[in-house]
Design a protein around this nucleic acid. Structure first.
Lengths: 223, 223
DNA sequence: CAGCTACATTACCAAGTGATGACAGTTCCG
DNA sequence: CGGAACTGTCATCACTTGGTAATGTAGCTG
C-alpha cells in the first residue's frame, strides 16, 4: 500500500515511515504543506497522513484544497490539540479520521490500514518474500525454492512475523506479544519449541539455514 | 534511553524491564511510591513510567510532587481504571500520557519512545559507528571495514557501551555498573578478560587498534 | 634497574541457554 | 462420541558462555 506522510518533524516522520515500511507499505515523506499538496495531487497514494501544523501551509488547508479538487483519497489527520472543536474542524475540512498526539504507533498503523481497506480492499500487501522463501498471506501458503511447505497456524504466524522483520533480531518478548498475544512471561519454552518445529520445515530440508539464533537476544531470519 | 519504572507488581515490572532492555533502553525499577520518588528526583531519566496504585505513596502523588519540584521529565501513567475521569486525573496531576491496563507491551514501548522523542529527538538510535567500526542495534550485528564480526552477548554490550562513549575514557566502575549491572567490585579481572576478548575480535585482525588502555583510568575507544 | 603495580592472555569449568523428542490436553471436526 | 490435528509442557541433552584463577608482560617509580 502507498502512504504519503506530511509531517514537518523529520524525526517523527522517519519513525512513522520506518514503521509503515516494516508493516509492508510503501511510504513517501513531505516535510511541509506545499510539498505535501504537490505530492498528494498526483493521486497515487492509498492514504494520506497529514500533520495539522506544518510550515508554509497548514494541514487543514492542504486537505481542503485536495478535496475541492475532487480528490477522495482517505486522509488521517494528526494533531497535538486534543479539544473536541479541533477534532470537528479536522473532519469538517475533509479528513476521514483524526489522531491526537501522542499516540502509539500501533494505533496509527491500525487506523491507516482501516482507512485504506475501506476504500480499496486488497491493496494491503499479500505476499512476503525473504531470499528464496515466499509467503502468500491470502492463500496462506509458504514456498521455499518453489516447493510448497505446509505450516500450522501458529507456525504461520511465527514465520510471518519473522519475515516482516527479516534481517532484524526479533526478541522473545516481541514474539510473545505479536505471535502469542501473551503480555507476560509464560515461563516456559513455547517459543523454542515452535522455532524448532519451524526450522524442521523451512530450513532442515534445504540445507542452507535462514533462521538463526542470536544467543541472549532472540532470533533473526536472514537469507 | 533511560527509563524508570515504578510498579509494585514485580512480575509485571520485570517483564516491562526486560522488554525495554531488549529494545535497547536502560531500565531501572522502583517497587513503591517512596522509592520511585527518590529515584525519580535525581532527574537522570528520559521517561518515567508510573503505576497509579502503589504502596507507601500512590502514583498521582508521586507525579504531583515531582512536578511541583519543577521536574519536566515526560511521564506515562499506568492504571487499571479506564474511566474518563481517571484519565483526566492522571493528566491533571502532570502526567503526559496515560495507558490503561491491560495493554500490549508494544504499545507501552511505542508510547515511551514517542514521549522521549518529543522531548529529545534522536535519543533512540539504531546504529552506532566509530571510525570504520559499525554496530546495528536492530540486527545485532557488528562490522569493521564491512566485514562482519560475531560477538557474544556480553561482548556486544561492552562494545555498545564503549561506542556510545567513544573518544572518552570509560572507567572500570562505569563498565561494572552499566555492562555488568554490578554495583560493587567483584574483585576479579572480569573486565580485563572481556576487553582482551573484544580486542581479539575487533582489533587484532585489522592491525590498527581502536581500543586503547588508559593506565590507571580505564579504556578508550577511538578511531 | 629492581620491585611493584596494573594490565593481558590463556585455559578451565560451572551454570546457563537453547534444541529436541515425547507426551498430554484441547479443539475441531464428522 | 471418536479421532485427528494442533499446540503447549516437560525432561533431557548438548553446547555456549562468561567468570575465575594462574601465569605472563609492560610500564611506572624511587
Amino acid at each position: 500500500m502507498r502512504v504519503l506522510i506530511m509531517e514537518d518533524d523529520k524525526t517523527v516522520a522517519t519513525f512513522m515511515a520506518r514503521g509503515l515500511k516494516e508493516a509492508g507499505h510503501v511510504c513517501d515523506l513531505a516535510h511541509d504543506g506545499e510539498e505535501g499538496l504537490e505530492m498528494g495531487r498526483d493521486g497515487s497514494y492509498d492514504v494520506l497522513v497529514v500533520d495539522r501544523m506544518m510550515p508554509r501551509r497548514d494541514g487543514l488547508s492542504v486537505i481542503e484544497t485536495l478535496r475541492s479538487d475532487g480528490d477522495k483519497t482517505p486522509i488521517l489527520i494528526l494533531s497535538a490539540l486534543g479539544e473536541v472543536d479541533d477534532r470537528v474542524d479536522g473532519l469538517k475540512s475533509g479528513a476521514d479520521d483524526y489522531l491526537v498526539k501522542p499516540y502509539a504507533f500501533a494505533e496509527l498503523l491500525a487506523r491507516v490500514e482501516v482507512l485504506a481497506r475501506r476504500r480499496d480492499p486488497g491493496a494491503v500487501q499479500t505476499k512476503l518474500s525473504v531470499g528464496d522463501l515466499e509467503m502468500d498471506l491470502l492463500a496462506r501458503t509458504v514456498k521455499r525454492d518453489g516447493e510448497e511447505i505446509v505450516l500450522q497456524p501458529r507456525e504461520f504466524r511465527l514465520l510471518e512475523f519473522l519475515m516482516r522483520h527479516s534481517g532484524q533480531v526479533v526478541t522473545r518478548t516481541m514474539l510473545l506479544e505479536k505471535v502469542w498475544d501473551y503480555h507476560f512471561d509464560p515461563q516456559t519454552n513455547v517459543i523454542d519449541v515452535h522455532i524448532s518445529r519451524l526450522r524442521a520445515k523451512i530450513d532442515k530440508p534445504f540445507g542452507l539455514s535462514m533462521l538463526h539464533t542470536v544467543r541472549g537476544a532472540g532470533y533473526r531470519l536472514q537469507a
